[in-house]
Amino acid sequence: MRISCPHCGERGLAEFTYLGDASVTRPDPGLPGAADAFYAFAYERRNVAGLMQELWYHQAGCHAWIVVSRDTRTHEIFNVRLAQDVALERSKSSVSHAP
C-alpha cells in the first residue's frame, strides 16, 4: 500500500500513521443528548467493509493530516485529500444547512 500525499506525492506506508474513521466528528457538548453522542463519538465505529474515509498523518513527511478513501476489503486507495480541506468543506455545508 502506498499513499499519495497531496503535498509530497506517492510515499510508502511506513511514513504514515493511522488514526481511524474520518467520518467520526466531535459532537457539540451543549446539545441535548450530548452524553450519548460523546459515547458514540468515543467508542462506536461503523467498521465499514468497503469504501471507508480514514484519517492518516504523514509523520515522516510533511506532517499533514489527510483523509484517505480506501476499500478495506482490497486496500485499494481511491482518493486522498487534506483533512483541513475536508473539515472546511464540512463546516461550510453545516452552516449552509443550519436552520
Partner: peptide, 16 residues
Amino acid sequence: DGYNSYAQRGNLPVVE
C-alpha cells in the same frame, strides 16, 4: 498492520 482491514493479507512495513 494498524489500519482497518477485511483483507486477509497485510503490507510490507510490518513484515520488516
